Simulated scan of single mutants.
Amino acid sequence: MADSVNDERIPTVICDGVDIVYRVNGTGAGRGSATAALNRMLHRKQTEKAAGVRRVHAVKNVSFTAYKGEAIGLIGTNGSGKSTLLRAVAGLLPVENGKIYTNGQPSLLGVNAALMGDLTGERNVILGGLAMGMSREEIKARYQEIVDFSGINEKGDFITLPMRTYSSGMGARLRFSIAAAKNHDVLLIDEALATGDRSFQRRSEKRIRELREQAGTVFLVTHSNATIRDTCERALWLERGVLRMDGPTEDVLAAYEDFTNGDKPKGPAAPAPAKQGK
Rank of each mutant, 00 (worst) to 15 (best):
R9Q: 11
S80G: 06
V125C: 05
L161N: 12
F259Q: 10
G121M: 14
R44H: 05
E213K: 13
H184M: 06
A50Y: 00
T260S: 11
T160E: 15
R234H: 14
T35L: 09
V18I: 07
L92N: 02
Y143D: 10
G133Q: 07
V24S: 08
I72K: 06
L74M: 12
A90V: 07
A34K: 10
V53D: 03
N6W: 11
S168V: 04
R40P: 01
P268H: 06
L220W: 02
L211H: 10
A194Q: 03
R23M: 04
V221N: 04
V62I: 02
G28D: 12
E137K: 15
T260I: 12
E233N: 10
D246W: 11
P94K: 06
S167T: 09
E250I: 13
A113K: 02
G79Q: 08
Q214L: 13
E96V: 07
C15Y: 04
N25H: 12
R209I: 13
G98R: 15
R44G: 03
L127Q: 15
T65R: 13
D258Q: 14
I100E: 12
L236H: 05
N225I: 15
A29G: 04
L93D: 09
T217R: 02
L211Y: 01
F200L: 09
F176G: 09
D246I: 02
A58Y: 00
S4I: 09
N183E: 15
A131L: 03
N6A: 14
G69W: 05
N78E: 09
E137N: 12
E213Q: 14
A37H: 05
L130V: 14
I14N: 03
D263R: 13
T120M: 04
T120P: 04
M245P: 01
I139L: 08
V111Q: 03
G121H: 05
Q214W: 01
G171T: 07
C232N: 05
G277D: 09
N39V: 13
R244K: 14
L220V: 10
H223N: 05
K49I: 02
T249A: 08
E213I: 00
G79T: 11
